[in-house]
Simulated scan of single mutants.
Amino acid sequence: MVRARFLIFLSILSIQSCKTQSNKINGVSFVASREAVNESHITPVVNLSANYAAIMPFGFMRNLDNPKVIFDTERQWFGETKQGAEQYINELRKQKIKIMLKPQIWVWHGEFTGFIKMENEVDWNAFEVAYTKFILEYARLAQNLKVEIFCIGTELEKFIENRPEYWSYLISEIKAIYKGKLTYAANWDEFKRTPFWSQLDFIGVDAYFPVGESKTPSFDECLEGWREHKETIKSLSIIHDKPILFTEYGYRSVDYAGKLPWVSDIGMNQVNLEAQTNTTSALFETFWNEDWFAGGFIWKWFHNHDDVGGKNDSMFTPQNKPSEKIIKHYYKSGNE
């Protein structure tokens, strides 16, 4: 039954493909790994018809109120370091894949970065110095490699809320170094309050919007679930006269995929490929034809394509699942 529905949906897509807007950012969030990558790791990205990849080196914090940012160390995985990011970018560029460099913070035990908040002024000042050093190091790399897009932060709402002046300063410091396009990756329930969109080139949204309550949300249910969110997103694009970029988007292949899409709890493990297919299809149908929508980066894409994802996987990656074909369809149509 699932296969039959999927084939029907693909036939509908083939009829609608002529409507898809061209020149979208059809991206993958290319996960940092322990090892260097080579052509064999990039070929599946090309086969997806992707034209962009987000490269994500990491800085680490011990807890939400510790002002130190540790980055580019020998203890990190290769892909999480500056050297690794550069190697990944160069390999992707060989296959004509453009780049968004997106340095991110990881808090110990996976605590949510949106809650990072220092306890006093001394620690705030120390944290600002640490974060500036982290981001400007990668802004220099972005400029040296002529990276197309640089993302200045990911899901840092409390940091921004408590230190808005700092962020204006940081953006000016980045612009003194890096001459490409800038964005910030705001969480899906944060982007409406981000104060500095006028200083950037894209309104960046990590698009984990809830779109359906059902165990297996239908395509139509997800389309309806997007209706109100879409109007809010579009209105912000109009107000700021900036295109919307989904700095992350995607749904898990799990029951209730559309209800709490941001949850990555491994305890949610009941595989539901149809839920991922329907939520993914509805997102594309809602946004990829809109002129004010720049495109996005699917969360997430691993370098060892043949060994990840598949019919028994309940996590975000679309690799080796029916949703990979949906993404390829839209990406290919958008590149024609």
Rank of each mutant, 00 (worst) to 15 (best):
Q199T: 03
W106F: 14
K215F: 07
P67M: 10
K117C: 12
K311G: 00
Q199I: 00
F293D: 01
I105P: 05
H329Y: 13
A32H: 02
K146I: 08
D72K: 03
N144W: 06
T43P: 00
I239R: 13
F209I: 11
L10H: 08
F71M: 07
Y249Q: 01
P67Y: 08
R34G: 13
E224R: 08
K242D: 11
V122Q: 15
A32Q: 03
Y330P: 05
T43Y: 06
I174P: 01
K215D: 06
I12V: 13
S253W: 02
H329I: 02
F209S: 00
P57L: 10
G204A: 10
A53V: 08
L101C: 10
W106Y: 14
V46I: 11
F191E: 05
E137A: 15
I25M: 09
K311Q: 04
Y138H: 11
Y249W: 15
E39Q: 14
F302L: 13
W77P: 00
R193I: 12
E80A: 11
T113Q: 07
E157W: 13
I42M: 04
E74A: 14
W197S: 02
M268W: 15
E324C: 03
F71D: 08
N90S: 12
P195Y: 10
E155P: 07
A257N: 01
G84V: 03
I99K: 07
S314W: 15
R252S: 12
I116L: 05
A185S: 15
S314R: 00
R34D: 15
D72F: 03
E111W: 08
K158W: 13
S49H: 14
L92C: 12
V129W: 01
S237K: 06
T113M: 03
N120T: 08
A50N: 01
F284W: 11
T81F: 04
S198R: 12
A142T: 05
M1R: 01
M1N: 02
E157A: 13
I298V: 12
S214Q: 12
V129H: 07
E80H: 03
I15H: 01
W301P: 02
T216N: 04
F9D: 12
G114F: 03
K234C: 09
S218G: 11
P164W: 11
F297W: 03
A186C: 14
W299A: 08
Q95G: 00
N23Y: 06
T194V: 14
H109W: 11
L260V: 15
D206R: 08
S17R: 13
F316A: 09
G250W: 01
P67W: 11
D189R: 04
Y88T: 01
V205I: 15
F202Q: 02
V107F: 08
S49K: 10
T216F: 04
F6L: 09
G114D: 10
F78E: 00
S40P: 00
R3V: 13
S22F: 07
N26C: 15
E157I: 04
S22K: 15
H303I: 13
K332P: 01
E336C: 02
Q76D: 08
T232I: 15
V31E: 10
T183L: 06
I70G: 00
W188K: 04
L223Y: 06
H305Q: 08
P210F: 09
V147G: 10
I135Y: 11
P243N: 10
K19W: 09
W226M: 12
I238G: 02
S323I: 06
